[in-house]
Amino acid sequence: MKDIITHLNPVFDHRNRLGIMSVLSVNDWVDYNTLKELLNLTDGNLASHMKPLEAAEYVEYRKQFVGRRPQTTYAATEKGKAAFKEHLDALEHLLKMNTGK
């Protein structure tokens, strides 16, 4: 049991961060506004959940100009994808044990 808990990644310990990683794991690059709309978050909210993911190097970003407006697009790094997969595996394991009881 203890073993599984160590596999659950504390960086992903929030539904919005799981949401961000879900979207980024099936898309190449996603811009800030699309993410915001998909997850139904405010500007500040998305930024604050993005920070720990950036700090862990699970996501990378690109800033570019579309016309005159700056646009930030995000992608999951290889490290982030691996960590996300490990987290999901641990979750699956945990749920299986729960239903097995």
Binding site: R15, L18, G19, S22, V23, S25, V26, N27, V30, T34, L38, L39
Partner: peptide, 9 residues
């Protein structure tokens, strides 16, 4: 929720 997000995106 994650599944739905993956679908919708």
């Amino acid at each position: 929720e994650m599944r739905s997000l993956m679908e919708r995106s």
